[in-house]
Design a protein around this nucleic acid. Structure first.
Lengths: 342, 342
DNA sequence: CTGAAAGCGCTTACAG
DNA sequence: CTGAAAGCGCTTACAG
């Protein structure tokens, strides 16, 4: 394999000149530049990434920590991963991926051994075990998901509180007075999935302020349990006219549950979910939903991370906590409530 | 950040001794080993991966090339990725992930710059553009998916021909005489998705040998097109009693299509799909299916790749092409055909 | 059982 | 505008 030394020899210059000719970091005569370029082409030279990393202290690699936890819905995670990966590539970075459920070990390995210039954490919990490790690392980190303590990291998330209010408000204005909110499984909450109760609390407050009834339930994140639970829930709340779904698996399962019961939205029930448009397409979900914007969040996280890595944001400059505002994508699943007894 | 030099100094030994004490590559006195270990602990030393890679010519990283093509079904890809990633980690390797649609550039970058010790290619086409690059690389490669030319690489795939035969056979034995096979979109075939016609051709041969009718159609890989196509297909073939689905998106869409038409399997129609059990759970698909074994294929590919990387298989030793035999997971969606006129 | 030294392939002050 | 040299942090023959 050709090295910069080979290039220098073939071009008839010193190694440093060859290096500078390639990096453009100092003025080079036209003649030399051309000879170096020819040498590179004829030798099919590519710099050794490890050697470059050692010399420059930069790897041009971003660590991506995606935890696939047993009770979360994998296809939803994929969207975030692709948002991060695509943006990183655009900005010249590769992705080192860790998918194990125990992200702490992988995070420590990546940062301590300096395999990465920075790190993106997905699926961040309220008290995320990975955060102390990240804060102790010399590399900057960006999160998708809001932890309790945001110090030392840049944080991006959907505004789940506003989402909860928006969902309730929307149905309230259409005339609904009894709603049910389906959240992620309790396990997710216990593990610190703060977004679950952020949305839930805000929804309850909004319902209270408007004097309407909101019941919240947790549902499983996989079939067939989630289907059964949805069915049981419809039995238990026969007078509810609106369904708010903050649980991707439940959203994916809902169409067949409604079908089986001969129900359709918005005729019998108004439904608002919270997932991405891409997700809706993949699962062919016919429900209006608040866009969860995984690609946009991934993109924002990587952009900010790269700005930090490349020193475009001063080390003293405060870290950001940025919320994406919920946008409702109307798929026609909301309407006036069915009239009682109809 | 602590270096091996710091460790050596604190332990009162030379750098080489410190290195050997950690690698265990030569005999070390008990006393020295202990002092080195203490120094490592007190300094919180972790080797610099780039420096180690430069010295050893090994990165302990495997490249994973996952192409997310516009007309393929992303959640199915995820399964393969996780199979690869999990196995790599077990064997001590990290994953460098490339998700761009143009895998050739990423592959070249990873191999030429020596960021990886080996590479796994997912979603391999019959004439895969990435293969010439992979063959020219010094790193070994393993494929999930069978290309026309398997030289120079280890190949793992589901036995799609046997799968086609099995599907036809199963329904034939139950008494079916008119079947429809739903494949991936034509684009996938044109791009070289050889598995599509491998299954299809074998199914046709099997049908011919048994004197039964098999119609094959291509269907889109996303909603709502695929739903409409499935519906049109049921209209066009009213006398068909069996449906073979070699298209994940079609399988995911089928339950609602059947529902809308008031059909159920196996009462009105016998259905056999081809996807993983995990996939069936995620999408709550009630159809019997041939297990596509993404985790197993990913695992096999990584295992063999690591054996090559680590020289446990001689460089002269021939490359393997290994097929996973199809196994039918019975979810009760096949039965005797409905009697004509019933 | 241990150490001094060379080398992996880059980049970048330093000197001219 | 260019070159000789040091250095990044490891590993591993070579020598004792």
């Amino acid at each position: 394999m050709a090295t910069i030394g080979d290039v220098a020899r073939v071009a008839g210059v010193s190694r440093s000149t060859a290096s500078y000719a390639l990096s453009g970091k100092r003025a080079i005569s036209e003649d030399v530049r051309r000879r170096v370029e020819e040498a590179v082409a004829s030798l099919d030279y590519t710099p050794n990434a490890g050697a470059r990393a050692l010399a420059t202290n930069q790897t041009m690699v971003i660590g991506l920590l995606a935890q696939f936890l047993p009770d979360e819905f994998a296809p939803a995670m994929l969207q975030y991963m692709l948002g991060v990966s695509d943006t990183a590539r655009e900005l010249g970075y590769d992705i080192l991926l860790a998918t194990d459920a125990d992200g702490t070990r992988s995070l420590r390995r990546m940062t301590d051994s300096r395999m990465v210039d920075g790190v993106v954490l997905l699926n961040v919990a309220d008290q995320d075990e990975r955060l102390p490790i990240l804060r102790a690392a010399r590399q900057p980190g960006a999160l998708v998901g809001l932890p309790e303590d945001c110090s030392g990291v840049d944080v991006f998330d959907l505004d789940f509180e506003e989402t909860g209010r928006l969902m309730v408000d929307r149905l309230y204005r259409l005339g609904h007075r009894e709603l049910v909110l389906v959240s992620q499984p309790e396990h997710v909450v216990e593990r610190g999935g703060a977004y679950v109760w952020r949305l839930q609390n805000a929804a309850h407050e909004a319902a209270k302020a408007r004097g309407i009834t909101l019941t919240s339930v947790h549902a499983a994140s996989s079939q067939p349990a989630v289907g059964r639970e949805l069915s049981a829930l419809l039995d238990a709340h026969p007078s509810a006219t609106g369904l708010l779904i903050n649980n991707e698996a439940a959203a994916a399962a809902l169409p067949s549950v409604l079908h089986e019961r001969g129900l359709s939205a918005p005729r019998d029930l108004s439904v608002i979910g919270r997932y991405s448009d891409e997700f809706a397409r993949t699962f062919s979900l016919p429900f209006s939903s608040v866009e969860s914007a995984p690609d946009r969040l991934g993109r924002m996280a990587v952009r900010q991370l790269v700005r930090r890595i490349e020193g475009q944001v001063g080390p003293g400059e405060p870290h950001v906590v940025r919320f994406v505002s919920p946008e409702l994508v109307d798929r026609g699943s909301t309407g006036a409530p069915r009239t009682a007894g109809a």
